[in-house]
Write a protein that binds this DNA or RNA. Sequence first.
DNA 1: CCCTGATTCGC
DNA 2: GCGAATCAGG
Length: 191
Amino acid sequence: MSWTDERVEVLKKLWSEGLSASQIAAQLGGVSRNAVIGKVHRLKLSGRGKTTTAAPRSKKVAPAPSVTASAPPRPATPPVTPAATAAHIHVQAPVRPTVTKTVGAAALQMEYVADTAIAEPVMKPASDVVIPISRKLTLLQLTERTCKWPLGDPLSEEFHFCGHESGESSPYCAYHAKLAYQPSSERRRAR
DNA sequence: CCCTGATTCGC
DNA sequence: GCGAATCAGG
């Protein structure tokens, strides 16, 4: 893949919106995060919002003059996307299916909780339920340890995957694994 | 270990 | 110009 004007524009846009290099690389496709970073530097787009890290190298090469770090004309660009990071919502398993809390992306998952609560009233007494908020990973950002539970319309730009910790054995995080592998034969569990 | 951006340097 | 390798840091 090459840096067509079009792709460079997308790069500029996403970079200014605060997406990380790897996220941008995943969006563009065909390039690594290194490629993105390299391009960003060549375009002199460094430092947006809050650029962490600017410490001069100390080994092997003379530290750069460090003219960076100071972004001159910073128009009131949109604030760095809040982007829900890896967070959890702890919910005391409701005795009655009355989960009504809706916090952005959590809404969808919340509905599931309500459903399972109604469908399986005779399950685990009352253990906490940890509902993961999507990390909004795109297909190319998935690794062997990220939950591959899809969220949203695949045809939409908003489509992404849960992306939470999935462990080595399952392709899903603990929560989505429960949804995916609902006990059918094991349902009759004496207790 | 996961991730981030920064820098170098062979291509 | 490009980007893998590498570095430094969270």
